[in-house]
């Protein structure tokens, strides 16, 4: 069993040997990830911290291992329906729409957004930026290839968000999957179409220490199921960063079970499913 002190030693050894700072990560998930790391590598904590201090390549791999989160195409369809019918229509008149996927993980959220934008005739005006702390996940995002059989739920989500209209059941959109991705059942892959893959700009970014690294503010920031891994202190800092990086009336979307707590919440109006930056 990994103790709190063990986790602290692990965090210290990473901090000493790199620019990564996991001090303000949420205790529980982090502890579990350290346990998994020890089991997967078949080593104890002493060996781990020693190796972290000596081996930069190993350290990078460890950081990649402990910052992986899973996601899916149109995860949480209700949120995407809110985007489609309530949020994106408000941005349609803008000449450009700046969107930041913060903590994009393996990229499914980006492709979901690009597909939705295309269906709404808004893809050309959209500038889509995607960041993650994990370079391996960024490469995965860029590649846009996902397992097929394991992810059959993607197609259900696609149907719910893209083909059905929950506000008018008579209205159905006949959108073939091939418009956006190729399914290869033999290779067991879903591959995003090239026009989607070349649309987003990808950058490595650490929410703990990097500010807004882009030369623009944003109309819409999505950061879903990322701040669950942060403690309140770091959550507030990250929410401040988002607040400062949004245009007035810009939208912030968190995960279905995340909320802004404490003082940071004063800067936003909360509507079911999303936050809107207040005017000052």
């Amino acid at each position: 069993m990994v103790t709190n002190e063990d986790v602290q030693r692990f965090i210290n050894s990473i901090q000493a040997a790199s620019t990564y700072d996991f001090t303000d990560y949420s205790e529980r998930s982090f502890k579990r990830r350290v346990e998994k790391l020890l089991v997967d590598n078949g080593i104890d904590l002493n060996q781990l911290t020693y190796k972290l201090s000596k081996d930069k390549v190993f350290l990078e791999k460890v950081v990649r291992d402990i910052t992986v989160n899973t996601t899916e195409l149109f995860r949480d369809p209700e949120m995407w329906i809110t985007l489609r019918y309530q949020i994106l229509p408000k941005l349609k008149k803008n000449k450009s729409i700046f969107i930041w996927h913060a903590g994009c993980s393996s990229g499914q959220e980006i492709y979901s957004m690009l597909i939705l934008l295309n269906e709404m005739g808004m893809l050309d005006q959209a500038k889509v930026f995607a960041t993650d702390i994990n370079s391996e996940m960024l490469e995965k995002s860029k590649a846009g290839v996902y397992k097929y059989r394991f992810n059959l739920g993607y197609l259900d989500n696609f149907d719910k968000v893209i083909r059905e209209n929950p506000y008018n059941f008579e209205e159905k959109f006949d959108v073939p999957y091939e418009k956006y991705f190729d399914i290869d059942k033999v290779k067991d892959t879903i591959t995003m179409k090239q026009f989607l893959r070349e649309k987003a700009v990808f950058r490595k970014h650490d929410l703990v220490k990097d500010g807004n690294i882009f030369y623009s503010k944003f109309d819409l920031i999505l950061c879903r199921n990322v701040i669950i891994y942060f403690n309140n202190n770091l959550q507030n800092r990250v929410i401040d960063l988002f607040g400062n990086s949004l245009y007035r009336d810009g939208f912030l979307i968190l995960g279905a079970h995340e909320s802004i707590l404490g003082q940071a919440s004063n800067s936003f109006d909360r509507t079911k499913g999303f936050y809107k930056k207040k005017q000052f």
Partner: peptide
């Protein structure tokens, strides 16, 4: 989501 209990009687969620 996975649902965890954290010290201090709080919930933590995870998408591991």
């Amino acid at each position: 989501y996975h649902m965890y209990v954290e010290l201090g009687n709080k919930f933590a969620l995870s998408t591991e």
